[in-house]
Nucleic acid binder design. Structure first.
Lengths: 252, 252
DNA sequence: ACCTGAACACCGTTCAAGT
DNA sequence: ACCTGAACACCGTTCAAGT
């Protein structure tokens, strides 16, 4: 019998680590988080299971690697968004729109970051990978914290509840995350959700919440629908085009 | 060799179905959703795998059965909450507090309902079980819809955004769900979340949001902290005692 | 030293064999 | 007709054997 064994070959470890994450990402994108299998990852790779396990101590560790990639993409979007040329509330809206775009365009990555938050995953992953993920998450949140702190200083955010920037940032994140998690495409769409479109409700929730914390100008004094259109065309035309390719149009 | 085969025995199918769900529930409570295994369920049961599969076509179907139990508990809590003797915004607060209590007291059930919303589960479960689950979810949401519709009629909810009751109900649900999902006990608690307590932020978010949709009286005109205390002592003293048993105190 | 893949334990699901 | 549990396919993880 002819041996079909793969020939041993040394590759730069950093490059290989990236190859492994990329292979996992392909499976994630085409089959979803639940179908992500070490067997399938290895099948896409020019190396063996043992080698994959040298880079990632377990499946959960690999998921952390994917989550890091997700956060890196999101950080780039947030940074682009926060630079929008408008008032501070419009910049907050820009960040939120970038989060929605990310959730639609990379819904597999969005799912992977959710998965990471569950004990089954974070209890198994290595301390090193967990620390790295936390660093990235902090970097992401810092963008929002800074915008909020500045807005409070400039009296654009009246903050009637006297919450600190971290608390306000969390209120916004909870709302946005919850909306996408309950109305997103990967969620069971039962009768109770009929008539609700994630992008429209997301926009509504954003207005309600920013009014609720007293972020000026309030809805009644500003046309945020127009701001949203401006943000999308000025900052995210490329992403909107990609979303449009799947036959979907973002309307507010 | 002595045969250790279980002796065949007929049992009322309805009772057995409940026994199976209860066995699954025990595992869920002690080991979490991810550790729920058909093997473990069968081990707790006086019947075989084949019989379990006669009642539930697959693991996901069984999860739907658990989810139904979860919704039934939640519906009972909502009904108790909405009967609170106070203004309509206080009744909304009561419902939200009951949701938080449910998430803390039955966090395993909370997790199971989340799991059901993912495609891996709802795509595999039987149509019959899905329909039943949807019916229960509608029953749950109807409680909130009705309260909102009445509040709008009575001009207690000024609804400056002109959203329909379903949309408002979804805004509230998104916020509450998102807050628990991001700050709950089963979530990775990294540095960015330090200093945030789910019950305190949950209460803050609730106030911000209800102010945002103009549900009267606004925070500045009413002490909702006192309302919360009244609601908990009048309606949920039993649940609060159970939570206290695990060394936890709900403070607002 | 580094890499491979057979082997093991575990899990969901099926179905031939029992009563 | 109803129930059982061995058997199968699949998956995460390990490690003895190869180079």
């Amino acid at each position: 019998m002819i041996s079909l064994k793969k020939v041993k070959q040394k590759i730069c470890p950093v490059a290989r680590k990236e190859m492994i994450v990329d292979a996992a990402l392909e499976i994630l994108a085409s089959q979803g988080v639940a179908s992500l299998t070490m067997d399938k990852v290895v099948a896409k790779l020019p190396c063996s299971k043992g080698t994959v396990y040298k880079h990632f101590s377990c499946k959960e560790d690999l998921l952390m690697g994917i989550g890091d990639k997700a956060l890196t993409i999101l950080i780039a979007l947030f940074n682009r968004a926060v630079a929008f040329n408008g008032n501070s509330r419009e910049r907050a809206l820009a960040i939120h729109l970038s989060y929605l775009i990310y959730a639609i365009l990379h819904h597999d990555l969005f799912q992977s970051v959710i998965a990471i938050k569950s004990p089954t995953v974070y209890n198994k992953a290595s301390a090193e990978k967990l620390a790295k993920h936390e660093r990235l998450e902090n970097k992401l949140m810092a963008i929002m914290h800074k915008l909020i702190a500045t807005a409070i200083e400039n009296k654009e955010l009246t903050n009637i509840n006297k919450l600190n920037p971290q608390q306000i940032s969390f209120a916004l994140w909870s709302m946005n995350f919850g909306t996408i998690a309950l109305l997103g495409e990967d969620v069971m769409q039962c009768e109770g959700r009929r008539g609700l479109e994630v992008e429209r409700e997301y926009f509504n929730h954003n207005n309600i919440l920013l009014d609720g914390i007293g972020w000026l100008p309030l809805q009644k004094d500003h046309d945020y629908r127009q701001s949203a259109r401006k943000i999308l065309s000025q900052l995210f035309s490329q992403e909107i085009a990609l979303i449009a390719q799947s036959g979907r149009v973002l309307v507010f």
